[in-house]
Design a protein around this nucleic acid. Structure first.
Lengths: 143, 143
DNA sequence: GTTGAAATCTGTCAGCA
DNA sequence: TGCTGACAGATTTCAAC
């Protein structure tokens, strides 16, 4: 049942409890209670409007893989990642330290960003051409 | 002014127009009109509850880089990416064809997924250990 | 963009199955 | 846990400026 709510909220986060209750065939108080618990437990980490970077002047999107270990690592220097150009940072296994998703306005901006990151390690960039699946809801495992 | 709205909605997508109008010091109808246009133009691509995969039985998160070109490419075979385990697909430049963000329950599931993907190309996987910056709002460029 | 008012809808509480 | 019924309050939306 929680999965029904999660599916709806992942797709349409602005739905009211009343509308939700209609869709999952539960009463509004029951929905409110379940959603409250999902938020409290951290299962629901927040509600966000998704903004397309390319339509707001950030037409250059890239995945930047950082190779940097030791004290100079980008992950140990928070100021390195404070830029609004850096949208996500994931620490990963393998030859690299972490992967950054970045979005900037121009290639010149991108060059600058790379220069800044180079102070902490070796960046390796892949430009994002398009996102055939920009996002998909998290469904129950094995379902 | 639209940026003020976008910043609020990216952080708290469930805010009502009234609450938004208070925060940005605009009247509710003006807010409703602006948000409607932002949605219509595609700047706002949707509103989503963010679900933590690790708290819902998908504790294995990874970035999978696919090397596959030609007719067998994963991007030309939609059934390859239809799985609920695949949360994102980004086509990229460089030695690889695309990068997938995936989340599964167990390593055994991950092994299966890799096997399936291998039919279309050569996958190279990095496990996501943690996400120091899981997400950040898109702000105006050069701001 | 703003105001003001009307109609609707929403969230929440208490009581009960 | 979940449902019902009712109430108080907030929200959306429309008109006119």
């Amino acid at each position: 049942m929680d999965w029904l709510l999660l599916r709806e909220l992942q797709t349409e986060a602005r739905l009211s409890f009343s509308e939700l209750s209609r869709r999952v065939h539960l009463s509004p108080p029951a929905v409110a209670e379940r959603v409250r618990k999902l938020e409290e437990s951290g299962v629901i980490g927040g509600y966000r409007a998704h903004v397309d970077p390319r339509l707001v002047g950030r037409g250059v999107v890239a995945l930047v893989t950082m190779s940097c270990y030791g004290p100079g690592c980008v992950l140990r220097n928070p100021e390195a990642l404070r830029s609004a150009d850096v949208l996500e940072v994931h620490r990963v296994t393998g030859g690299a330290c972490c992967v950054l998703r970045v979005a900037v306005a121009t290639m010149a901006d991108f060059e600058e960003l790379i220069d800044r990151l180079s102070a902490y390690g070796t960046p390796s960039s892949s430009m994002v051409l398009s996102s055939p699946v920009p996002w998909r809801p998290t469904l129950p495992p094995g379902g």
